[in-house]
């Protein structure tokens, strides 16, 4: 249906319709919408008082305040605007490894689900792919739920490959748009810690409400295919190491990955980012509806 992944059943789409994006602060939009904006406007949300000046609508003059202070003040209201939602999907080679985990497929599904929530709320959405090679042309900023098909087609054409320099890629993308909004970064975040923190700090510094969605494979977490003496090779960097793995070592690896995720989450929360972890062994729709709050969504 609309080129969406198989997880997007009619029921799931219906449940997505009832979700909306939630921001931690008011962000300036590009047009009328449903999100409160720092701009003054005509919504019902009271924003404060302002000095009356010629031409102000007398209907907004607060006559009680005039009686107490003998000065004319007008009541100001907040504006409601749409929200620019930017989705960055990691398409580096690690997202396709191990192949059986289908990490990139689920990362694409997560991005499309978030995009659908935004489009259904009347917000603008822009999906960008980080890393990868021979990327197709991006549909750009889209609005209206029917454009989800364009986004699905775009992501379906992406094949994970190569490495990812997260700080450089994010800096490039953020410089292109330079607008406030909501940002989702979907990745396995399996990269050098320094590159990871530098990249996430870019989001912290930008005027965006960012959420990091980490996608890890179930088999990847269990390290089930590793035993005895193996030569491991990093699919992105090509680095190699010959290690001897037994039951204890596999357990240590699992603990290391869990610690890595915990530290990532702690970094995100410390720096004002939201964080959600999806392990592909869990059904996708179950994860998405369970992690609504972590993802920065609301019913």
């Amino acid at each position: 249906m609309l080129g969406l992944p198989a997880e997007f059943s009619a029921d799931f789409l219906s449940r997505l319709e009832h979700l909306r994006l939630k921001t931690r602060r008011e962000l300036q939009g590009m047009g009328k919408g449903s999100h409160l904006s720092p701009r003054r406007g005509s919504s019902l949300e009271f924003a404060g008082f302002g000095h009356y000046s010629d031409g102000d609508d007398l209907r907004y003059v607060d006559w009680n305040l005039f009686a107490r202070t003998d000065r004319l003040y007008v009541k100001l209201f907040k504006e409601e605007e749409d929200l620019l939602t930017q989705l960055f999907v990691d398409a580096s080679a690690s997202m396709a490894c191990p192949q059986a985990d289908r990490k990139f497929d689920f990362a694409r599904a997560a991005a499309l689900a978030l995009a659908y929530v935004a489009l259904a709320s009347g917000d603008r959405v822009m999906v960008r792919v980080l890393g990868g090679t021979a990327l197709p042309a991006s549909p750009g900023m889209v609005k209206g739920r029917h454009r989800i098909a364009d986004l699905a087609a775009y992501l379906s054409a992406v094949r994970p490959a190569g490495g990812l320099d997260l700080p450089a890629a994010l800096a490039r993308e953020l410089a292109l748009v330079r607008r406030a909004g909501k940002v989702f970064l979907v990745s396995d975040f399996l990269m050098a810690p320094r590159a990871l923190t530098d990249g996430l700090r870019l989001l912290t510094g930008a005027n965006v409400d960012a959420t990091a969605v980490q996608v890890l494979g179930g088999l990847e977490l269990e390290s089930a295919d590793l035993s005895g003496e193996v030569e491991v090779r990093d699919v992105e960097t090509g680095e190699r190491a010959v290690v001897t793995l037994g039951t204890q070592e596999r357990s240590a690896l699992q603990r290391a990955l869990a610690r890595f995720s915990r530290e990532l989450k702690a970094f995100c929360l410390r720096h004002g980012l939201r964080y959600a972890l999806y392990v592909t062994s869990e059904p996708f729709t179950t994860f998405f509806m369970r992690a609504v709050t972590d993802l920065g969504l609301a019913h």
């Binding site: 690690s94 997202m95 490894c97 191990p98 990490k103 396995d188 399996l190 990269m191 050098a192 810690p193 494979g217 990847e220 295919d225 590793l226 005895g228 003496e229 193996v230 030569e231 491991v232 090779r233 990093d234 699919v235 992105e236 960097t237 680095e239 190699r240 190491a241 010959v242 290690v243 001897t244 793995l245 070592e249 240590a252 690896l253 603990r255 290391a256 990955l257 610690r259 890595f260």
Partner: peptide
């Protein structure tokens, strides 16, 4: 016999754990 080659998504977890390297082994 030579170590079995395995491609992994990232070598970082292996660096995080004090695993016995092949040469050391």
């Amino acid at each position: 016999r030579p170590a079995r080659p395995v491609v992994v998504s990232s070598i970082i977890p292996f660096r995080m754990v004090a695993l016995p390297a092949g040469a050391r082994a």
